[in-house]
């Protein structure tokens, strides 16, 4: 019994070794290529490891070199201090409210418009779609001054979360993306549904909307990432710390800690990044596919 299992383990490890050996490069050019990939991987990962390990260092050692890459005696006090210095929970909640409202809003407006441009016929459709495409060329900074005037003087909602939500509810990119998805779905479904007595709204809501879900997921994940990480728009609209999203909070925290421990700031960065990491873990396929297709956001 024991012998067979030992043999089996030994065999398994040799096949594993064999496979590794076969995967190893044979020509010097291939070794060089692997070396290049590793060097860049180390350079991209190094700052990330540094952030996490330094956030766990004793406050007094936070800025001393050499850095401690693997934290030996971990100190979580930095994480506690984040909550004392800035209204961390309110700022994270603000980021969540803004991001989720914008994602939901864009899904609704863009799926309706994308469906209309793909499947419904109405006079002026081509001109209006061309107009939507043209707005994709306009960068946010070119419109921020009038939008600020409109938000603050026209609507009087600056320094509220509405100021960060309302202007972002419609998206030319989202319409373009979802139109592509609706175009790929065959039209036969519609005729079948009509024979079964479905009305136009039901055809959209119960047949085409669910079938476009990969596109909806791409839009959701891309928008989540872009909105959660937005710094410029909140900087223009927000003044009250309790209403800041977390990106402003982190820079604020850096200001407080100018003479203190940077470990606290890095702890804040680690905490504020957790939501996007979770989104990445569950939606990486959609995120990567979306970035490949669009590339306008981010």
């Amino acid at each position: 019994m024991t012998t067979t299992s030992t043999i089996r383990t030994a065999m398994r490890s040799t096949t594993w070794l064999n496979r590794l050996f076969r995967a190893l490069p044979r020509r010097p050019g291939e070794w060089l290529r692997l070396l290049f990939l590793f060097v860049i991987a180390i350079l991209t990962l190094m700052p990330l490891v540094w952030v996490v390990s330094t956030s766990l260092r004793q406050p007094i050692e936070s800025f001393s070199v050499p850095p401690e890459w693997i934290p030996v005696d971990m100190d979580f006090s930095n994480y506690n201090e984040v909550f004392e210095r800035i209204p961390f929970w309110s700022q994270m909640t603000n980021s969540f409210i803004i991001t989720i409202a914008v994602v939901a809003g864009q899904i609704v407006t863009a799926s309706l418009a994308g469906y209309a441009f793909a499947r419904l016929r109405f006079p002026g459709r081509n001109f209006l779609f061309w107009l939507v495409l043209a707005t994709m060329m306009i960068p946010g900074q070119a419109t921020i001054i009038p939008v600020f005037i409109l938000i603050s003087r026209g609507l009087g909602i600056n320094d509220t979360l509405w100021a960060l939500i309302i202007p972002s509810l419609s998206t030319a990119f989202g319409i373009f993306l979802l139109r592509q998805y609706f175009l790929q779905i065959p039209g036969d479904f519609e005729e079948a549904a009509m024979i079964d007595g479905a009305n136009q709204w039901q055809i959209f809501r119960q047949i085409y909307f669910p079938l476009a879900s990969p596109g909806l997921a791409i839009l959701a994940v891309l928008t989540f990432n872009a909105k959660w990480n937005d710094y410029f728009t909140p900087l223009v609209f927000m003044n009250t710390k309790d209403r800041f999203p977390i990106t402003l909070g982190i820079v604020d925290l850096k200001g407080y800690m100018a003479t203190g421990s940077i470990s606290v700031v890095l702890a804040g960065i680690v905490l504020s990044t957790i939501p996007v990491i979770i989104i990445y873990i569950f939606g990486q396929r959609y995120l990567i596919e979306g970035l490949m297709m669009g590339g306008i956001k981010g």
């Binding site: 609704v108 407006t109 863009a110 309706l112 418009a113 469906y115 209309a116 441009f117 419904l120 016929r121 109405f122 006079p123 459709r125 209006l128 107009l131 939507v132 707005t135 306009i138 419109t143 921020i144 001054i145 009038p146 939008v147 409109l150 309302i166 202007p167 509810l169 419609s170 998206t171 030319a172 319409i175 136009q200 709204w201 959209f204």
Partner: peptide
């Protein structure tokens, strides 16, 4: 379907007019 088309694009077109094209 034509009427539905205008209804469906209305939220987006209004948003884009007010917050991108107008500005």
């Amino acid at each position: 379907r034509a009427l539905l088309g205008y209804l469906f694009i209305a939220p987006s077109i209004i948003g884009l007019l007010v917050f991108i094209i107008g500005p």
